[in-house]
Design a protein around this nucleic acid. Structure first.
Length: 743
DNA sequence: TAATCCTTTCTTTTT
DNA sequence: GAAAGGATTA
């Protein structure tokens, strides 16, 4: 048999061979969906004698796209990195780049990510003197982005608005669109919306793409929003050879405008053939039963029954602990115990919110277990990285106001808000770029005499780089830039994490170098837009060493699988999240989120919940998630571990102390400290000066107890405490610690 | 006028 | 416990 078809089951094979006409593939969790897509791609390529570029495959994440490319390359035994396997946004960007004149936008446009858009919206609201207390800029930003995702223009919205919030949003919306245009910038929704406009208005361009892609595939179809679906329809309606792959049970992006109804619409609109993949190859039957019992509570699902031939397997371990700190420690203990049998890369920890990652990071760090956090404070969202990217954007596109705001006084060069506004005004009045405005600073009377040279110097640096940007390699460009603005010294002195921050910058340089190797013809302008779409760490240099524990949000976990999975913080308020409690629809989405998390596990699944957790910097008690009740008791094994310390112990943290002190309740603190001073045994020594402390020293702290020094500089030290995790200590902490000289 | 310190508010998930 | 805004200092 054809080696492309051989490893497939009957249903999978049927899907692969159904090449012509619309196909709706309902693929349950772990049913070999990616396998079908990749084999189908290879099969069509071969059967129809097509070129690589003739099949369009759309995914939601860069990670999924590159995974798909890798697997197809292995299958067809040659490199397919040039195939049209892309995210929606990157596909949109390519269409725009190829058709600049139809877009009516200058082709040197920059792309604003969500942070950029939000900052722009905040500035606009300030300019319009809108009270940001009653109207939250983030909320307005979200509203505008969701309008754009539904292809609603400011004009359309004017007729629809129905509240005072809408009125405000409308005002900002129009101004925001004008600003984007003036800045020659596009936001994420534009990357879908503008291609739709171009294709609807230019029959020749539409024809081009319809002929380019006689075959199309869309992954994670349940997550498409209406604009994305429209884009697919525009291109696919001619040949109708569209295969969409989805699972309504895994729809977890409703909040971003994803519309599960697209699945039903697709079926009827194209009279699609429907194939359901129901055999699960991933999880033990215990895990699968638990998943089914969670999701079956939702009414109105598409009927499907996942089954497996796998054995029953281990029971699901349910861990109950006193605090979230205990929870982290407990999970790390389990990882240590299981690491006899598994490698670190076999473990994953999932959580509902990014904020939960920190505590695990600390626990893993203190046990020297390698880990990697996916998403979260994303690499490209770190201050030091955004600064440099903003410089690049400003140089590539001197009209970009958002980048201007970001770089004007970074590193600090004594250019304050007043001067900043004056320079922007000048640029506006004369309709010149921000670089030109900087260079014309001496013509602004209100700017202080001694800052004028500083401003002009900055302008000069930007100008020179702008003139050389398509003559030198991206790596050289960035190196010259960093040198010119003395960024290294600035960032090293920035805060206690200066070294970490600088190593992030070095990592950025590496990724530019890597990009350069893959795109030898490219200049820095090409790099910058590519990178804005690549918002997660997986776009960075592939890790040499993949042997680490993976930490990520459940949303990030979709599409992945791990032998051992820990789902932490399974408490009411996190999972389901508190913000969902008012709506059945959102509650169901939370339930599906839990389902997605469970179905990632292959062999061992741990669910954990603390009785108390930190929230708003304060310890609060919490209840187990109501979803836990839906898992039959006979699938569970309980692990209790009550902390030896009462929960109250934890309240003695810096923030609690500060709050209590603020309330004037000094007495309580003093009494508490009185009782809890760790017993000094007499073997410890007082520390006179910081120079006596070395990395690796054991110390005892008056309030935090025992700990080990993990970092020393001339200003502060980092200590990993047994009870309190890693703390930075600076100031006159010496009086509170003793060095432990024994053992 | 700019930098720093202090106070208040607010948290979901992401291409 | 971060991040934004306000008050205070230099």
């Amino acid at each position: 048999m054809d080696p492309i078809l051989a490893p497939l089951n009957d249903k999978q094979r049927e899907a692969v061979q159904h090449t012509d006409g619309a196909l709706l593939l309902l693929a349950g969790a772990g049913s070999g969906k990616t396998r079908v897509i990749t084999h189908r791609f290879a099969y069509i390529l071969k059967e129809k004698h097509l070129r690589l570029s003739n099949i369009l495959a759309v995914t939601f994440t860069n990670k999924a796209a590159s995974e798909m490319k890798n697997r197809i390359s292995q299958l067809v035994k040659y490199d397919v990195s040039g195939a049209w396997i892309r995210t929606f946004h990157s596909m949109g960007m390519m269409i725009l780049k190829k058709n600049p004149e139809a877009m009516g936008y200058p082709k040197e446009f920059v792309i604003y990510d969500d942070t950029d858009s939000k900052n722009l919206i905040r500035t606009i609201m300030k300019e319009l003197q809108i009270n940001t207390e009653s109207f939250n800029p983030a909320g307005v930003a979200e509203k505008i982005s969701s309008l754009k995702d539904n292809l609603i223009s400011p004009d359309d919205f004017e007729k629809m608005r129905s509240s005072s919030f809408d009125d405000i949003a409308f005002k900002v919306f129009g101004e925001y669109e004008r600003n984007l245009r003036k800045n020659k910038a596009l936001d994420f929704p534009d990357l879908i919306g503008l291609p739709i406009r171009i294709l609807s208005k230019n029959q020749d361009i539409l024809n081009f793409y319809q002929d380019l892609w006689p075959y199309m595939m869309v992954d994670e179809f349940q997550d498409t929003n209406s604009a994305q679906y429209k884009l697919i329809n525009l291109i696919g309606s001619k040949n109708k050879n569209i295969c969409v792959v989805g699972d309504d049970d895994q729809s977890i992006y409703g909040w971003r405008g994803a519309n599960v109804d697209n699945i039903y619409d697709f079926e009827s609109r194209y009279q699609a053939k429907v194939i359901a993949l129901e055999q699960n190859y991933r999880s033990t039957s215990v895990i699968l039963s638990a998943a089914n019992s969670v999701v079956s509570k939702i009414s109105g699902r598409m009927e499907k029954k996942l089954w497996t031939e796998k054995k029953e397997g281990e029971k699901i371990r349910l861990i109950e602990v006193t605090t979230d700190r205990d929870e982290a420690r407990m999970i790390v203990d389990q990882i240590k115990r299981f690491s006899q049998k598994y490698e670190y890369q076999d473990f994953a920890v999932f959580y509902r919110t990014n904020a939960q990652s920190r505590i695990f990071e600390e626990s893993l760090l203190s046990e020297n277990i390698p880990y990697k956090i996916f998403g979260g404070q994303k690499f490209y969202e770190r201050k030091e990285i955004k600064d440099i990217l903003a410089y690049i954007k400003q140089i590539v596109n001197p009209f970009d106001s958002a980048s201007f705001d970001r770089i004007i006084n970074v590193p600090k060069r004594k250019i304050g808000e007043a001067s900043q506004i004056k320079i922007k005004q000048l640029a506006n009045e004369r309709n010149i770029s921000f670089i030109e405005a900087l260079l014309a600073a001496d013509e602004i009377p209100q700017i202080q005499k001694n800052t004028v040279p500083v401003i002009k110097e900055l302008g000069q640096i930007l100008l020179e780089l702008n003139q050389s940007m398509d003559k030198i390699t991206p790596t050289n460009f960035v190196k010259i830039l960093l040198d010119a603005i003395h960024y290294r010294n600035y960032i090293l002195d920035f805060d206690q994490d200066g070294l970490d921050r600088w190593s992030n910058v070095e990592e950025l340089i590496n990724s530019i170098k890597e990009y350069e190797e893959g795109n030898p013809e490219a200049f820095v302008a090409d790099f910058i837009n590519e990178v804005t779409l690549q918002t997660s760490v997986d776009g960075l240099a592939e890790d040499q060493n993949r042997n680490y524990v993976s930490l990520m949000t459940i949303h990030n976990a979709k599409g992945l699988e791990f032998p051992v999975v820990f789902i932490c913080g399974v408490v009411d308020g996190l999972l389901p999240h508190a913000s969902s409690s008012f709506s059945q629809r959102e509650m169901n989405e939370e339930r599906r989120l839990f389902y997605v998390a469970i179905t990632r596990a292959k062999e061992n699944l741990f669910l954990s919940y603390p009785e108390n957790r930190f929230n708003y910097g304060e310890l609060m008690s919490c209840l187990p998630s109501p979803f836990l009740k839906d898992i039959p008791e006979d699938l569970l094994e309980h692990i209790f571990k009550k902390s030896s310390k009462p929960a109250g112990f934890v309240k003695n943290t810096a923030s609690y102390r500060k709050k209590t002190l603020d309330k004037g309740d000094k007495k309580e603190i003093e009494e508490y400290e009185e009782e809890n001073i760790p017993e000094f045994t007499g073997k410890e020594q007082a520390v006179q000066s910081l120079s006596e402390i070395n990395q690796g020293d054991k110390i005892i702290h008056k309030r935090f107890g025992r700990g080990k020094v993990t970092f020393v500089s001339d200003k502060f030290i980092k200590v990993d405490f047994e009870e309190f995790g890693v703390q930075n200590m600076s100031g006159n902490f010496l009086a509170n610690i003793r060095a432990v000289k024994d053992d």
